[in-house]
Design a protein around this nucleic acid. Sequence first.
DNA 1: CTAGATGCAAATCGTTTGCACCAAT
DNA 2: ATTGGTGCAAACGATTTGCATCTAG
Lengths: 151, 151
Amino acid sequence: MRGVIGEVEEKLRSNEYKMTPKREYVLRVLLENKDKHLSAEEVYNLVKIKAPDVGLATVYRTLELFSSFDIIHSMDFGDGRKRYEFGVDNGDGHRHHHLICVQCGKIIEMNEDLLEDLEERVNRTYNFTISDHELKIFGRCSECMPKNKKE
Amino acid sequence: MRGVIGEVEEKLRSNEYKMTPKREYVLRVLLENKDKHLSAEEVYNLVKIKAPDVGLATVYRTLELFSSFDIIHSMDFGDGRKRYEFGVDNGDGHRHHHLICVQCGKIIEMNEDLLEDLEERVNRTYNFTISDHELKIFGRCSECMPKNKKE
DNA sequence: CTAGATGCAAATCGTTTGCACCAAT
DNA sequence: ATTGGTGCAAACGATTTGCATCTAG
């Protein structure tokens, strides 16, 4: 994990940006919560535990900075605020799909890529060069949809 | 097209809501712009041409009302505002996928459903009961991606 | 020293809400 | 009359920005 921070630092440095302590805290929070999808305010609150003097604006600016370098990825699940995740760009586009439970709000991440043939088809049919995609699937998770309950 | 308005009126009426002139203008604007994805403010501006005394709040309230009856569908393309389209719910979930050109901002609509087998798989693998899904594909449209230009 | 980084508060922007008034049953 | 519909302005919540200060190279 330490390596990741170094990589990010290098990425910033090579573009005249600094890896400051505050920025490192933001990054750590994102790294330690890879599975979650934190909002700016949630990141802010977690960073404040370690750096109580941090400002919300700094968190926003840092998230924006990281986003612009594709270090993290922002998304929205329709709740009016952006959410961030440490983004694994594997080179040929982002591959994170989310199952969003409309009942309990849980978000399940599906990391497998299931859209390859679809991309092919879109490319050909619409002459559209895909760089990324985002798939949100709404429904009910297993806990919210008991076997014996229909809807 | 006149029939659609009647249908909507009926849908509202059967739930104790009225199809008022203002609401009809909002609906008409959406109908006349099926291919576009208008924001609340854009709808407002178009409605104002016919009904200059309309208020923005009414437009928001009407859009919310129509959404709650699945007459229209709201979505967001990451530009910080909700966008609305006259929604064709074919009964087994919504099927609108969008190709979003990251260069010119054009939004191409794909109405075919390409995700049926994916849904099957998700249902089985994650025990997740799908009610809807939303797929956004980012990239460059044919006009913004000349054959001889690589990226 | 100089430019970027930061905190704070004010500003912004899309959207929502409270309230008084209007319209239709 | 009663209930829902509407305009206006104020309220809101997430995000951004202006500015003075701080800090690292």
